[in-house]
Design a protein around this nucleic acid. Structure first.
Lengths: 344, 344
DNA sequence: ACCAAGACTACAAACGATTGTATTCAGACG
DNA sequence: CGTCTGAATACAATCGTTTGTAGTCTTGGT
């Protein structure tokens, strides 16, 4: 009546459970007579046999399960990453536990602890903190660890990250070609790896184009939110900083920038060009549609899965990291600067 | 060296493993001497003991795990639902397996099969199909099943759904009070429960307000997408149907409507008022900001978790369903109709 | 001083798979 | 005809818990 077990199949097929186990496992099938194997396969199917993953894991000590740690699933960045990861890990027979940390140290510790309790075979860390003791702690457990969206100093930990630097370069080239010379960067929090990387890339780009690295052209926002973006631009305007273009650390900051501009009666792109980062959904429906750097989130997840699988299958393999190329989506928020700098 | 087991703790504490097991389980702790329990607790902690969930599940046949079936995590509807569910199930000690079906029958079957293989203790079904043999199949397995976002004829299956009917009523009342009499409904696919429910509610509202139920005022879109919404409105305009307001089946259709309106040189809300459904993120950044019906997605997930827990803890309990109230978020896409119907 | 009752704790059998080793058996060979 | 070999299968231990039952030891009542 209950779910059939290996012994049930064995009994029905008239063989020993061990034989059924080997017949059912493609790896060991050649150890059993071909006819017997066929018979076992058939009776297993006819009984509707499904192996009990818990018994198997108990015996083999591998759970066919990996843990994914993200700040917040509700952040539109992550769902595509999660899907990419699940899609490729799923076809490899792995399940994924997703835990949210809300960027809270306590919750993060609890989340990781829950993954440990569940005996995951590997970890994917997509939280934003730049450095973290947990990374070392996990790596010491001799379980594959993979970083997403950020890197660490430790070169032995593989990671998959968007190539923020070249994304910023793309955006800057676009603005410079349009004729902009005074470009503001709305930098994200410098404690977050994306915030940090993009600001650095911004400075490099300035240098590459022979533009001055004026300190007033960089505002560090305390968070990646619309509010922070709006406040930053308001401050810029209040301080009479001259600029004709804004490179926002991400789309949310760009949206905040839109708000501040509108509030001050400035028009985009006539007065100020704006470019975002991420190509979040609906950015093409903004007014004007936002020019932004697109990040292949799904591919990031998928690539992370592939790298993790490598680590799972051949633990001794040399750690490998990948950098994913980005592209610039030019829409209507960028245009040549007005002939004269706007009146202050 | 390896992760400590119950026997290790037992040995270290000088007691039998069974005693450790009972001491560690709050349910059975009173069976063991208080001092012994304390000692066991301490040595367990000092050894860093973590119970092996697989061994436990193998023995108890309960996996402390539930399966959540959704169409696509990438649809902004679902992340908050998932988080709501995970947050409350998580504190109750349950893990959640999330599987995506992409509204594909095959993938759905495979997804459910994978959940079965993992011995989940309960299912939450949030897929859109109106009726489904799987529902009966699962219910027959004597495992709690909970429906989210849709209901079925079977009254014995609990569900948590947004109160679409009253949401539609809210929106309609708003439009009617503004003075609109010819209101179009961009209906979603009638094979989806949300599409179906909202259209029905639309008709009721028409009746309640004494408005004629003119067939040309309802367009069924073949999917909940911007394209479909745009096409529907184009057709309406091509057919010279007169209307001053649009109630879209969801926000995406409303966005499509915006596109079509703009393309034809009509302005919202001056020429046509638009109201959406869901209050998807960034709907407040549209131009104009969209008036829409807000659905408490996170609460839906949380409530679903609570109901499922009830089913898990007391299987004989009578099935209970809940309907969550919605609210109307009035923004700038709705206004009184122009004095005269727009020229055709 | 003996016995019953209780309070603890130990024993041992599961749960359902995997896997190293032992067994069986048929055929080959000297 | 006995021995050996190798293929195929059976046996049995094991993974780490949980839990019914049996055992031990106090304690108190008579």
């Amino acid at each position: 009546m209950n779910r059939p077990t290996l012994r049930d199949v064995a009994q029905a097929a008239g063989v020993h459970p061990a034989t059924v186990s080997r017949a059912l496992n493609p790896q060991t099938r050649q150890l059993v007579n071909a006819d017997t194997a066929q018979r076992v396969l058939r009776t297993a199917r006819s009984l509707g046999y499904r192996p009990n993953p818990f018994a198997r894991t108990l015996k083999t000590a591998r759970s066919a399960t990996v843990g994914l740690v993200i700040p917040d699933l509700t952040n539109p960045l992550f769902p595509p990453i999660v899907r990419g990861l699940e899609d490729v890990l799923g076809t490899a027979g792995y399940g994924v536990w997703v835990v949210n940390t809300d960027n809270d140290e306590q919750r993060e510790a609890a989340a990781i602890e829950s993954l440990r309790a569940r005996n995951v075979d590997g970890y994917v860390l997509a939280t934003a903190r730049l450095n973290h003791p947990l990374i070392d702690e996990l790596a010491a457990e001799n379980v594959p660890v993979l970083l997403v969206n950020r890197r660490t100093e430790r070169a032995d930990i593989p990671s998959v990250t968007p190539d923020d630097a070249s994304g910023v370069a793309l955006a800057m080239r676009h603005l410079v070609e349009l004729g902009h010379r005074r470009i503001v960067h709305l930098a994200g929090p410098q404690s977050l790896s994306t915030g940090y990387q993009r600001l650095r890339a911004f400075r490099y780009a300035l240098h590459d184009h022979g533009l001055p690295d004026a300190p007033e052209l960089v505002v560090e926002c305390e968070s990646f939110t619309e509010d922070a973006g709006a406040k930053a631009v308001q401050r810029l305007l209040d301080d009479d900083v001259e600029f004709t273009a804004v490179l926002a650390g991400n789309d949310l900051l760009a949206v905040g920038c839109y708000d501040a501009l509108e509030e001050r009666g400035l028009s985009c792109p006539a007065d100020v060009s704006v470019v975002g980062f991420n190509d979040t959904r609906f950015m093409d429906k903004l007014h004007p549609p936002l020019t932004t750097v697109r990040i292949p989130h799904y591919d990031i997840g998928a690539e992370a899965a592939r790298l993790l699988l490598e680590g799972l299958n051949q633990p001794q393999r040399h750690a490998r990291s990948v950098l994913l190329p980005l592209s610039l989506v030019v829409r209507a928020s960028t245009a040549p600067p007005a002939p004269r700098t706007r009146a202050t």
